[in-house]
Design a binder for these strands. Sequence first.
DNA 1: AACTATTGTCATTGA
DNA 2: CCTCAATGACAATAG
Length: 653
Amino acid sequence: MSRYTTMGCGSSTSLVYHSSDSWSCSIPVCSVAAGLQRLTALTLFVCFFQDMDLIDILWNQDIDLGARREVFDINHRQKEHELRKQLQLEEEKRLHLMREQEKALLAQLQLDEETGEYIPRPPPNAPVEPAVTPLEVTQNVGFTQETGGSMSFDECLQLLAETFPVEQNQSPSVCLDTPPVSVPASSNMMSPEPTALSPAALSSGQLTPPQRVSPDLEEAWMELLSLPELQQCLNMQMEDTLQTTTYPLPTSAETQTPSYPDYPPVQTPIFNPLTSISDAKTNSLNVGPAEFMNTFDGSVPSMPLLDAFRQIKVDAPQLDTSFSGEDFGGVFYPPTEQEECSSQPGQEESKRMCDSPNKVAFAHMDLYSLSPGDSVNRSKQSLTAEHLDSDSGFSTNGSPNDRSVYGSGSFGCSDSEMDEMDQNPGSAESDYSEMFSLNFEPEHFMASNSVTELSRPPQQPEKKPKQREGDPAEESGNEGTPFTKDKAKKRSDVRLTRDEQRAKTLNIPFTVDMIINLPVDDFNELMSKHQLNEAQLALVRDIRRRGKNKVAAQNCRKRKMENIVGLEGELDSLKEERDRLLNDKTKNMKNLKEMKKQLNSLYLEVFSMLRDEHGNSYSSSDYSLQQSTDGSVFLVPRIKKTFKSKENHPSPL
DNA sequence: AACTATTGTCATTGA
DNA sequence: CCTCAATGACAATAG
């Protein structure tokens, strides 16, 4: 991560007079440029790519829950690795380009001698270049603006105040109003550890960039998101965010909006979580702050970050005015405006972005959080629902269709219980949300509590929906992700849906997950608590049996694959050993041959030295040397051996 | 259309 | 006898 540090620090500190050891702190949120933030963010991404191996490991740990052949397929892994390398290269290229652009941008800045800050030069054509050139950069805005704030918002505020004294009366109230939660959340985004990611940030803006930027980033993002720990962290932070709902956001928004009437209408739709959701209903959100606030009243939980971002964006225009240089805003903030969707009908692209799942996700969360008194469960449920929704939503084919596809799959089952469902296939879609709110939420909730959650490998199918939660973008662009997760998810969805539907049809009061994963005692207790009729009992038993068997089958297959892999390894090692033994054999044969040769020569030598009583040498054809068991050597006549041995005993040498 | 891979399910077996 | 896990076999599905 040295590169990470140097690049981050180098580019930032060179621009901002305020320096710090930590590069994350040196990232200017308001004073320098969004472009810088984009740069650092992209640097971060590159670093993420560098850590892809780690991610890969984690990923595989996750995937390993179910045995798939690819896990053991080295070629497959190598392909992935190459692909990743390629992505890395591309990313570095992009980064290089960014730096070039950054230089160009800096060229348009001049040093303010009073403040020591770099400020944009007045030339009227200044904004043109930055506004146009960093198209790709522009697309990162959602990401960088959030992630760029590695410093706390107070720090940002301070910096902003120092940089633009004019704004002091406005900014403090704004920024201080921003929830403390959003600060670590957004700042953590810059940290390479996935655990630091903020769910809200992810849901709102973080998810967008990969979708907007490039498939590479998207893929990387998805892989990041698919990390179980990350998701866990996301959930945790989401809960935190949900619990911290007491900030007076509306006030800040209200103070902001009227103050700068030029911008708010434009800005609000960008980060308005409800815009995309309630698009159909309240498409006129940009009409006025009052409506805006009304719309937001219920969505407080998710607002902190959004509001913060909106404030950043709203602050931007202020900066413009304060510096009386529209060019300034043109230089630094065109990206934000490019992202604005609802206010600019011509931009279908950005509009589509606004409909992107993260926004939808946010909306769902907010909607769910509307119901008071429901905290954790609700948040989890909303997570589930939102991503299920966003999942299909992001497929750009219209969520209802996708859902109905799934739904029809579930209804297509031939079970008798499903007959009545088949009769009104139209209910598939309508029942969907209800179904998941009814069954899915407790399922996940239970899953987190249940014992089996700990021994997760068998739970793969149940876990897949969670994976979907984690990365709504996955549905659209996981062609790069290994292990055919997508398909698996769809199937598991169908499967779960089927069981869910069955349970729902018979009004089973528990979740499928409970039915399957509960320990026997708890399960029996649960059964005894509720009065279930025969059909219900049978179904519950079937669901439990099927669920357990499903898990068992997965385990079995995993074991089988592992066995195969183990046997293959064993085969390899045995082959190696065989080769080694063959080598030994030939070597030994050679040695033996050599020794025989030596023995023969020695024999001849010894034999030639033997003399009889007359001093004559023995004929090798008539005599031979033989060694007895006790080590003594005898001269034995070859022919007439029998006679000679009878008549005269061999003479010991 | 045939083939393959994946996954879910059922039946059976043994602990 | 019941429960459960393991496993072979089959079917459905998607690519």
